[in-house]
Design a binder for these strands. Structure first.
Lengths: 148, 148
DNA sequence: CGCTCATATATCGTATTACGACATAATTGG
DNA sequence: CCAATTATGTCGTAATACGATATATGAGCG
């Protein structure tokens, strides 16, 4: 809104209660979306992180075929954690593992039909929910930067 | 749903690889921010959820004074989980508890000076980081709704 | 008023999962 | 071919959220 610093309730530290409230609200909106996502995944019978893994595999860029390490980078988890996650997903019949042809250290991943179907259902629900939550998210984000 | 279906690479299920990639990218951007936030909190000596609790308390709306239940609602956790969280924060010297005057079932919370200082530092860092990440977040969000 | 029900918080045992430390296999670079 | 690096896998541990349960307080009502 205004270029200069004219917000009310500024404390001695340079941070106003409004700024705390703006960030808190943004985090609340994030939690709302994440809670929806977790709930939807669990209702579909998937631990949330396995849903994220399926999404990362399905949405992988062509230059980086799905692998354990690719999952670790995309999900921002340690490589050994990704290996454990993939192990659970294989047990659940969601992915298949196969040593890569060029570099046999790498384990390439593929979704099973079961996983593809689950992910499709979840994604439809997420697209709808995101279109509903987007305004609140953008508004919350906007309340942080310029407005102060 | 949508009026016309014209996106490329549409699969037999009505979801394109681009849509999966768009949602995956949005989640990746969210994880980047959340990972920054967790890392910043840990570096400050705070478990991430305790940082969120401090933020919720500092940014509380005037009509709902900070309490265990208010935290549960704001952080989207069960009331007993919020009670445990507050217990850990009290042990850590971050909050003080006091039975509310009007309703002695409620436990009202207040930040200690130590917590206020930690939160201020963290918030400054978050404001800066959010201003940097905001474009990527908005772009990722925009890639979902209209573009399909 | 006394009783019952609902609400707010607290406690405890359990389950999930991410990590560090470590191990193994495969590739790379001399 | 050997040393270093990379990719994945295994195992024990730690953190924390939850369900079940308990206690205390408030609210409604005959």
């Amino acid at each position: 809104m205004n270029a200069v610093m004219t917000s009310v309730h500024r404390t001695e530290t340079g941070l106003s209660r409004e700024q705390y409230a703006a960030i808190a609200d943004f985090r609340f909106q994030l939690r709302r979306f994440l809670a929806f996502s977790e709930s939807a995944a669990m209702r579909a019978g998937l631990p949330p992180q396995q849903h994220q893994a399926l999404l990362a595999i399905a949405g992988h860029r062509a230059d980086e075929p799905p692998s354990v390490g690719m999952l670790a980078r995309h999900l921002l988890i340690a490589p050994n954690t990704a290996a454990e996650l993939v192990g659970r997903m294989e047990q659940g019949g969601l992915v298949t593992k196969e040593a890569a042809a060029e570099d046999r250290r790498r384990t390439e991943l593929a979704l099973t039909p079961k996983a593809a179907k689950l992910l499709r259902t979840l994604t439809v629900a997420h697209l709808e929910e995101l279109r509903e939550l987007e305004p609140a998210l953008v508004r919350a984000l906007g309340g942080i930067g310029p407005a102060g």
